[in-house]
Every structure is written in structure tokens, then in C-alpha cells.
């Protein structure tokens, strides 16, 4: 509380000794350098190199072809849709549990379940949705035989934009619940009471106080969910094989067999992914820092 604590006198200077403390961080630094930084740098550098090793912008320019651009575009669309819907639905569920007057015991199981569901991604998740919304899936069959609704005839296909989006939502919604619940808890009772006693209606409280306070976490989580969907490979491949041309699937095929006919175009493709998720996460980190500053 007191601001004086920061003005504490600096610790007394230790007698001179060779500074060897940094040695303790060396193994970690080597690991990170070898298996995180350098591989990534290799991609970034490779994106600007010819096969002979000289500098070029040709690879980046190569991204701007119709097929690659449309792959990025579909990827971005799926990521935005699943992030947006994930945020909205996750927020509704979390606020129902925290503020909606539901029994207290619901929270614990809800958070535990969200923890499990947000980690249940990848290949098995695709199987679960194929078994549910696929051509012979539980819901598809039920709707057709019991209610006479033919999803396929309505244009729905699990191996499509919406199919993938709905599948991604299975881990996006719980992730939103996990991140936004603490933010909802951070809304102090006194803020609501202060607004009320100052004459605000419930709607005014939400519009002027609660929503602006939650907005940074909300937008921040949106960015995180976006990156989360954008980098997802396994679910997409297991669900669609290679029938849907999204960036991760394209890159996967390129690494396996150079389908683009230019190894360095693969670098550029990967570099593009880093740029997109990097932007999303920069937004996330920036907004999160803002909201934490408010809520401390």
C-alpha cells in the first residue's frame, strides 16, 4: 500500500567478486537458443534467402499468389470466427456462473471441466466431432431420422469452414472461460455498489464501469484464441485430411514433400504464420498489461 517501500535504501554493495551468477542461467539459455530461437531465426532468415544464400524478397513476393493468399485468408477467417464466437460464448457461460446467481458449487466443476476440454485438442477432438457431426454422426443421424432435417442438404459439411470453426470452439470456449473467470472475479462488489448509490441503473453500471474494465481482458483473450486457432495443425489435418487449404495444412504438406516446388517458399509461408500470430500475441500482451494495471 505505502509508496515508501519503493524508496528503500539500495542494498549495501557486496565486496568485489567475479560476477559468476549468470552461469546458473546458461543451460537454460543454451536450450532456448538451440531449440527455440535458432530454429525460428533459421525460418525467418530463410524466408529472405535464395537457395544459394543471397538476400531476396522473391519468397515473400511468392506468397502473394491466389492460392496461398486464399489459404491465409481462410485460416484467418476460421481463426477470427472461432476466436470471436469462443469469446462470446465463453464469456456468457463464465458470467452466468460468476454473476448469474447460479449455485456456488457449479464454479469448481466448470473450471475443472474447462481445463480438461481446453487441453482436449488435436487428433482425438477431430474424431469426436466426426462421430457427432460427420456424415453418420450422432446429431446428423438424429436430425435426419427423427426431425427430417438433412444437414448435408442444408449445405453443412464438417470438412468446411464452419465445420472446422465449430470443432475449434470445443477448445476455444473453455480457454475463454479459464481466462475470463478471474477477470470477472476481479470485478469488485464495491464498484457495483458505488455505481448504484450514485444513481446508476444496472445497465449503466455494465456500460460505463464493468464492460470497460473487462474490455482489455476480453480483447486480449480474443487475440490469444486467434493465435491458438491459427497455429492448430493436428485437428485440421485429422478432420479434413488435405481437403481444406488452410496455411498450417499447406505448410505441413510443403515440409513433407515440397508441394510448392520451392523450398524457400516454405520458409516464407512459415514466416507469415509467425508474423500473424506474433501480431495477435503482441496485442494480447499489451492489452493484458493494461488490464492488470487496473485490477491490481
Amino acid at each position: 500500500m505505502s509508496s515508501d517501500s519503493s524508496a528503500a535504501p539500495p542494498p549495501a554493495r557486496a565486496p568485489f567478486r567475479l560476477p559468476l551468477h549468470w552461469l546458473g542461467a546458461v543451460p537454460f539459455a543454451i536450450f532456448v537458443l538451440l531449440f527455440l530461437i535458432m530454429p525460428t531465426m533459421r525460418i525467418v532468415v530463410g524466408a529472405f534467402q535464395t537457395p544459394e544464400g543471397s538476400f531476396t524478397l522473391e519468397n515473400i513476393r511468392g506468397l502473394f499468389t491466389t492460392s496461398i493468399l486464399s489459404a491465409y485468408w481462410i485460416s484467418i477467417k476460421i481463426s477470427i470466427a472461432s476466436a470471436l464466437l469462443g469469446c462470446l460464448i465463453g464469456f456468457s457461460v463464465a458470467s452466468a456462473a460468476v454473476l448469474g446467481g447460479l449455485p456456488k458449487w457449479i464454479r469448481g466443476p466448470l473450471l475443472t471441466f474447462s481445463g480438461v476440454a481446453s487441453n482436449f485438442a488435436g487428433v482425438p477432438l477431430a474424431f469426436a466431432f466426426l462421430a457427432t457431426l460427420g456424415p453418420v454422426g450422432l446429431i446428423t443421424v438424429f436430425l435426419k431420422s427423427q426431425l427430417g432435417i438433412d444437414l448435408r442438404a442444408l449445405g453443412f459439411n464438417i470438412l468446411s469452414f464452419w465445420g472446422l470453426t465449430i470443432t475449434y470452439l470445443f477448445f476455444q470456449i473453455p480457454l475463454m472461460i479459464l481466462i475470463i473467470t478471474p477477470a470477472l472475479d476481479g470485478l469488485k462488489r464495491e464498484w457495483r455498489e458505488a455505481a448504484q448509490i450514485l444513481g446508476a441503473t444496472n445497465a449503466q453500471y455494465w456500460r460505463l464501469v464493468a464492460f470497460p474494465i473487462l474490455l482489455p481482458s476480453f480483447l486480449g483473450t480474443l487475440a490469444l484464441l486467434f493465435a491458438n486457432a491459427f497455429g492448430a495443425v493436428a485437428t485440421a489435418i485429422a478432420l479434413t485430411g488435405s481437403s481444406l487449404s488452410i496455411v498450417p495444412i499447406l505448410l505441413f504438406a510443403q515440409i513433407r514433400g515440397d508441394v510448392l516446388g520451392n523450398p524457400h517458399l516454405g520458409y516464407a509461408l512459415a514466416f507469415g504464420m509467425i508474423v500473424v500470430t506474433g501480431i495477435a500475441n503482441t496485442i494480447y500482451i499489451w492489452l493484458r498489461a493494461r488490464s492488470e494495471r487496473w485490477l491490481k
Binding site: V93, A97, G100, L102, L110, A128, F129, T132, L138
Partner: peptide, 22 residues
């Protein structure tokens, strides 16, 4: 409360149905 239960049940169905399906 009606709204809150609605949101919760929608969320639950979303997660339970694929699990039942598989």
C-alpha cells in the same frame, strides 16, 4: 437466472454432445 441457466446449459450441451457422440 433463466438467462444464466440457459447459457450454462448451452455450454454444457456443446461439450457433452461430442463426447456422447464419440
Amino acid at each position: 437466472k433463466f438467462w444464466a441457466w440457459g447459457a450454462l446449459i448451452f455450454g454444457l450441451l456443446y461439450f457433452i454432445l461430442p463426447l456422447i457422440g464419440m
